[in-house]
C-alpha cells in the first residue's frame, strides 16, 4: 500500500510513519525547518514545504503530489493539519475519520478508534475512509538507520495575508516526551502559586503542564503545556494532577499515563475516579511535604 503523511511540526509524523512502514510505502510532508525531526523514520521521501504555509497554498502543494494515487492519507492533527485534512477530503470527496488514536489496516478497510461524546466514550469504526487525522504522540516512534531523501517545494503565495505576528514566550518544552508530568488545575488559585509547585517539578526531574482553564482562560501557563482533548495527549510514566477536578475532557488527554497521582481538596472530585493514588488535601501542604520526602 502507499501512504501519504502530513505533519505540520514533523514530530507528528514520527510515530505515524513508524506504524505505517510495516504495511507499505510512506511519503511524508512537513513544513520547512521541521524536516530534521522526521527524516529517520523510514519514509521513502520527505517533502518539505518552504514558505509561509496556510491552508490554501499547502493544499495546492499537496495536490501537486497526486494524493489520489495514495491508498490512504494520514494527517497529524494540528490547527493547520485539520484545515488541510478537510480541504483534501473535500477535493477527494472522501470519508474522513478524525482524531484517531489507534487503528488497524486490512487492505482498504481501516478500523479506527477515537473519542466521542466529549471523551466519555471510545468510538470504534470500520470504513474505507481515505483521509484520517491522528492524535500526535499516539503511536510509538522508532528510528531506522537510513535517512529519507528530501524534496523541497516552494509554496505559492496564499490568499491569506499576514498582517502581524506575535511570537510567544515559548519555552520550547515538549510535554509529550516528559516521563513525569506535574499538572496543575484551577485549584492552584493564581499564577504566583506556580512557584510553590516548581520544587516538586525539579525534585522529580519532570515537566509542568496544566488544564485548559489554566493554559487558555487564565494563561498561567502557555498553551503548549495544555493537556486535554483540545490540547496535548500525554502518556508519561507518572502524571501528578494538582488541583485538577478531572473533567472528562482533561481525562481524555492523560488517559494513557502509566500511573496517575491526584491531589485535591474535594473528596468528590472526579479525578479520584481516574487516579491510582490520591491524597485528599490542600496541595500547598502536600507539595512541600512530598518534596522533602523525595529528597
Amino acid at each position: 500500500m502507499k501512504f501519504l503523511v502530513f505533519s505540520e511540526d514533523g514530530n507528528g509524523a514520527t510515530g505515524l510513519v513508524t506504524k505505517l512502514r510495516e504495511s507499505g510505502e510512506v511519503d511524508s510532508i512537513t513544513l520547512g525547518g521541521e524536516e530534521s525531526k522526521c527524516i529517520n523514520y523510514g519514509s521513502k521521501t520527505v517533502t518539505v514545504l518552504k514558505g509561509r504555509a496556510m491552508g490554501d497554498n499547502s493544499l495546492k502543494a499537496i495536490q501537486a503530489m497526486n494524493p489520489e494515487s495514495y491508498d490512504k492519507i494520514f494527517i497529524s492533527s494540528s490547527p493547520l493539519g485539520r484545515d488541510i485534512a478537510g480541504m483534501i477530503a473535500a477535493t477527494l470527496k472522501s470519508l474522513v475519520i478524525t482524531e484517531v488514536f489507534d487503528f488497524t489496516l486490512e487492505n482498504e478497510i481501516i478500523r479506527t478508534k477515537r473519542f466521542f461524546y466529549g471523551g466519555k466514550t471510545i468510538l470504534e469504526e470500520e470504513s474505507r475512509a481515505k483521509v484520517i487525522t491522528t492524535q500526535p504522540g499516539a503511536f510509538e516512534a522508532k528510528k531506522v538507520d537510513s535517512s529519507s531523501p528530501l524534496n523541497f517545494v516552494e509554496l505559492e503565495e496564499s490568499k491569506i495575508s499576514l498582517e502581524e505576528e506575535v511570537e510567544k514566550d515559548r519555552s520550547g518544552t515538549d510535554i509529550e516526551s516528559a516521563s513525569i508530568l506535574i499538572s496543575v488545575g484551577r485549584g492552584i488559585g493564581k499564577k504566583e502559586a506556580l512557584d510553590q509547585v516548581k520544587p516538586l517539578v525539579e525534585a522529580v526531574h519532570g515537566e509542568l503542564s496544566g488544564s485548559r482553564p489554566v493554559c487558555l482562560d487564565y494563561k498561567w501557563l502557555s498553551e503548549e503545556r495544555q493537556v486535554g482533548l483540545s490540547g496535548k495527549k500525554v502518556k508519561p510514566k507518572v502524571y501528578i494532577a494538582l488541583g485538577i477536578s478531572g473533567q472528562i475532557q482533561h481525562i481524555a488527554g492523560m488517559r494513557g499515563s502509566k500511573i496517575v497521582i491526584a491531589v485535591n481538596k474535594d473528596k468528590e472530585a472526579p479525578i479520584f475516579q481516574e487516579c491510582d493514588y490520591g491524597i485528599v488535601g490542600d496541595l500547598f501542604q502536600v507539595v512541600p511535604k512530598l518534596v522533602s520526602s523525595l529528597k
Partner: peptide, 28 residues
C-alpha cells in the same frame, strides 16, 4: 457518501487502582 460502520461506542475501561488517602502523611 460512505458512512462508517460503528463497531462499538463504549466508555473506556479505567483500571486505575484508586487508592485514596485522607491521611495526608500516610499518602505522602
Amino acid at each position: 457518501f460512505e458512512m462508517p460502520k460503528v463497531l462499538s461506542n463504549l466508555a473506556p475501561k479505567s483500571d486505575r487502582k484508586r487508592e485514596i488517602y485522607e491521611d495526608m502523611d500516610k499518602g505522602i
